[in-house]
Simulated scan of single mutants.
Amino acid sequence: MRVLLVEDEERLANTIARGLRREGMAVDVVFDGKAALSKTAVNSYDVIVLDRNLPLVHGDDVCKQLVARQCISRILMLTAAGSIQDRVTGLDLGADDYLPKPFALKELVARIRALGRRAVMAVPPVLTAGDLTLDPARHVAERAGRDLSLTKKEFSVLEVLLAAEGRVVSAEELLERVWDENTDPFTNVVRVTIMTLRRKIGDPPLVETVAGVGYRMVTPTQ
């Protein structure tokens, strides 16, 4: 899952970003509303965590502009103002969820994951391919009842491939969805992750390479 974190308090932003990355999320961080609008114009995010009280462009205006652009990212607004009216205002602007400060990182992670599951195209709560199942909510991946013991990046790559339902996913798309913008675009990290993922999934193979295009999930009968 790729997340944009927009928070003007740099120390808090960096602390949140570290926590989200430990949970396997790809996180880009900006510190003002203008930078947020620039990032969302060129990158796709599953969830945008947006503080309301931002410099340069207020968080409310960022939210309104994203909605006007028909941005498909889910928006979670953060604010130190936690009254019911503040929450109603944030939701009326087009935000999908609202979390008052201070908050527990565990709750933020849960809310981001919940929003990530509310994609424009509904994704089943449990993804499958043959005898392989992946449950994003429980963070469990199994094949024929055997736990695959995936790393967080392997789990995220498998989740993207399964959600594509047989569509070929390019290495560039995997890099964008699973890793953040600080990752070297010429790295072989996607190929290495696919290799270890295949080894853990076992035979018969379920991840197919489409030469020069990318990767897709197949079932043993295909």
Rank of each mutant, 00 (worst) to 15 (best):
M1C: 08
R2K: 14
V3G: 01
L4N: 00
L5H: 02
N14H: 14
T15H: 10
A17F: 03
G24N: 05
G24M: 05
A26V: 11
A26M: 03
G33F: 00
A35N: 06
S38I: 14
A41Y: 02
D46G: 11
V47N: 02
D51H: 04
H58F: 04
G59T: 03
D61Q: 15
A68S: 12
R74I: 05
L78P: 01
T79F: 09
A81R: 15
G82D: 02
V88A: 10
G94W: 10
D97A: 07
Y98D: 06
K101R: 15
I112N: 00
L115G: 01
L115R: 05
P124G: 06
V126G: 08
V126I: 15
P136K: 01
E142P: 04
R143C: 08
G145V: 06
R146A: 13
R146T: 15
T151W: 12
V157R: 02
E159G: 05
E165W: 04
R167P: 07
R167Q: 11
V168C: 03
S170E: 07
E172P: 01
E173D: 15
R177K: 14
W179V: 02
D180N: 11
E181Y: 08
N182Y: 09
T183R: 12
N188R: 15
M195L: 15
L197P: 03
R199N: 12
R199T: 14
V213I: 15
Y215L: 00
R216C: 14
